[in-house]
Amino acid sequence: MHFADGEVTAILGPSGAGKSTLIRCINCLEAISGGDIVVNGKSVREKRAMLDIQKQTSMVFQHFNLYPHLTALQNITLAPIKVLRKNKADVEAQARGLLDMVGLASKGDRHPAELSGGEQQRVGICRALAMNPQHLLLDEVTSAIDPEMTAEVLRVIEELAGTGTTLILVTHEIEFARRIADKVAFMEGGKLVAHSDAETFFNHQSEERISRFVDKMKH
């Protein structure tokens, strides 16, 4: 499977298919037991490449995993300052810009617990974007959020599609995937079952099992 630069790939599949594990492996959060993943020519199996890969890929988590003791702004600026060693003032300006983009300009000084789920996840997206990643990994980013809050998060992701960042998103929002994905990968039981253009995947699906899954997820 290949993820081209700037492309949006949605990874679909039933629970336990290994979707999250796959993107966690891309980000070196989990060690791979076999095969290989190459990010910009560097293998995740190489210990020395790990930091480089983590600088180029950013993760947005299902359960946000914001740092609860830091404000929204500090959550966003920590890694760029400490890992990328960027100037603090620059990073803060960038972070405020990102918060503005996701509609949270006034909430930079709040702690995560003072924000709603949707707001926390938007901060999580800003935190990932502040690393200026080439590849953004989104791990079921709306599944821990109240339904009425998911729209605001999805809108932000939709805006990111087509900005040159490679998006790889694990999702159960079929309609959303249909709307923004260029490619769709379907996983089941730890294996990649299908990988094709979104158009082909949704409209000309040859595998009946997959069409049934997609139909079921629509409702």
């Binding site: 959060l29 995993n65 920590l78």
Partner: peptide
């Protein structure tokens, strides 16, 4: 999740 959120962005163990 806190460890993962730190590791995912390349923070070292010490950081």
């Amino acid at each position: 999740g806190q460890w993962q959120a730190a590791g995912a962005f390349g923070l070292s163990y010490g950081q």
